[in-house]
Design a protein around this nucleic acid. Structure first.
Lengths: 347, 347
DNA sequence: TTGAATAGATTAAACGATAAAGTAATCCAA
DNA sequence: TTGGATTACTTTATCGTTTAATCTATTCAA
């Protein structure tokens, strides 16, 4: 509750509220001496502009929303930090929402955010058939997609986004396993409605083809990016007669789930089974885990996404060119894939 | 930008704006038929109340702020999720701020939050000599402390809080090591200005005394709750001639730092060195890590803290009794402390 | 000396809702 | 049938800013 208002200052100095407003906002039409005087009195009285009134007259809140599936998933905190810090830098606040992987909750979040008049939304959870894109467009609220995007070029071409080159990440990670001689690979995929999982899988498939592995010789299981599911799937896989020699996981958290199953089955990594992750969460590098994985630039995604959004908010009335930013992934070789099935690495 | 306003509805139906407002808000003084009619037209026209105008007239934003040191620290995401979900349930939004362990950034965050007119703040980062408590009180903004609190009973008795019984956690964890026969213990402490670290250390010291370990026989190092620092400290410790047989860490992330140092020194856990953590972050349970630790109730802390805060906001004008909630910790025995130095556990 | 331009201010409207006060019609009891 | 209570509204004020429109001296060129 900011007590002192612009009127208090005005009446104290015997001037009009408009003059005080103009002085404080550095606008023309106020004499030098008076301006200085007003500024002094204002700070002396501890004046704090009332955000509600400002928001009302400008129809702007200087707040943005960030929607993630769950901040507890170790993939998202760095992204959120990127958004928050860049937002603060640009004078915005960040409101955080978790969808818990639910389209319905995603919808509620968007509606709430809109009802509160945020200036824009960063959506990290979009799916291919996501009805909420239409919602966002109907609400005419600026938004950018980060992490995941829409693959339909017709739609995608008009939506700002910041994503990793997931195809390449998928390709390179599969290639790494293939070069090490693995031919029985199970792909532990993320949510196959998410562009990330689709593209990583597509990249992996292409790599398989290049290395002459036909479709019957590997399989892809949608584990929805949840660790628990990956664990259960791996558990089952390892009971079959012809178990895979490598698990290609599309998320480090899922890789950890698989790792758990492998360990429980009494097998070792990379001795019996090779394991490859994706995202390079902080935890993947700890001794004894040392997951070979693909780096992801969560912080940068959040930070750049925020820049795009704020740009978009500022230039709302102008024509605005769509920006699609693609970040480059990097294969990070640690120990979870060992030194290859036959002890050497193919070219 | 919500286009249609209360006035549009009013003029369309030939009634006054006040009647529309009353009808929509379920207030008395509107005839049955008219009320129904207004509601229908409103939803038909896609009316969305303008939050800015509402905020201005009620001087309330239905938003709260959460201040953590860094959302990337695996301790905080669950807490944030607890806050966000409870907040949503109660009709509030959560704005997230990271302080990066800086008092100055903490101050900025509070001031920003205040300037934006949030209804209250949840502070998870308070230190004993934190000048920002005075700031919060000066601003007369409702707040609650979670995770950490102030130990000075004079101040603490008037501030709502939700914390773990850190003394007990510290005591039990030390006792566990002592029962296993460890007598050379290094305590990797958190930030010693945080009540968590102070109380955990106090608990540990008391346990030491009960088990007859004098002060010269163990040491306490402030690692500020950062993994990297813990890693470096452990690295140094392991170079000394008389290395500890156990590290008692006040945070799982720091335990992982220590673990790294131990591994790099070519030693094993728990074979050569016992390791005990605190917080039970999700990662601590994975195969091969299996950190013995103390459970912390991050989600509940966030959720309950939010309830207290919203209570406090609602009853702001009333006398309001201070609530201090203490959650119980639980020792979670996994493998990182092995089976005791002499192969047995003391009573 | 006149008229236009300009600096420095004021007034009033607007933003979109809510809350308080006022009014006209209806109802019911005495 | 009178008058108090109730109901269903409307009018007006207010929240704290910003901003467009207006006003009044003063300056200055012609």
């Amino acid at each position: 509750m900011s007590r002192v208002t612009i009127k208090d200052i005005a009446s104290k100095l015997g001037v009009s509220a408009a003059t005080v407003s103009n002085a404080l906002n550095g606008k023309a039409g106020v004499g030098k001496a008076r301006r200085k005087n007003i500024m002094e009195i204002a700070s002396q009285m501890g004046y704090q502009p009332n955000a509600f009134a400002r928001n009302l007259v400008n129809q702007q809140s200087y707040a943005i929303g960030l929607i993630v599936s769950s901040i507890s998933d170790p993939f998202y905190p760095e992204l959120a930090r990127g958004v928050q810090e860049k937002a603060s830098e640009l004078g915005y606040c960040m409101m955080l929402f978790n969808t818990n992987h639910s389209i319905k909750v995603e919808q509620n979040s968007i509606e709430t955010l809109n009802a509160r008049g945020v200036d824009g939304i960063i959506l990290a959870t979009v799916l291919q058939d996501d009805p909420n894109i239409a919602l966002l467009e109907k609400l005419r609220i600026p938004f950018v997609l980060v992490n995941r995007l829409l693959l339909d070029p017709g739609i995608a071409s008009s939506i700002d986004s910041v994503v990793l080159d997931n195809y390449r990440g998928g390709y390179e990670s599969a290639r790494h396993l293939l070069r090490m001689g693995h031919t029985r690979i199970t792909i532990i995929a993320g949510n196959m409605k998410a562009s990330t999982a689709i593209l990583r899988t597509r990249g992996a498939r292409d790599a398989m083809q290049v290395y002459g592995i036909s479709e019957e010789r590997y399989d892809v299981v949608d584990c929805g990016y949840v660790m628990e599911t990956a664990y259960r799937v791996a558990k089952e896989k390892l009971k079959e007669k012809n178990i895979p020699s490598a698990f290609l996981c599309q998320g480090d958290n899922m890789a950890l789930g698989v790792r758990e199953a492998v360990c429980e089955a009494g097998m070792t990594i990379p001795g019996d089974i090779a394991l490859l992750g994706f995202d390079d969460i902080e935890f993947s590098s700890v001794a004894g885990i040392e997951l070979t994985t693909v780096s992801h630039r969560q912080y940068q995604m959040g930070s750049t996404g925020t820049e795009l959004l704020v740009d978009k908010i500022a230039s709302e009335r102008q024509a605005g060119v769509t920006k699609n930013i693609v970040l480059e992934p990097e294969l990070i070789v640690r120990k979870s894939c060992g030194f290859g099935v036959k002890g050497y690495i193919m070219p």
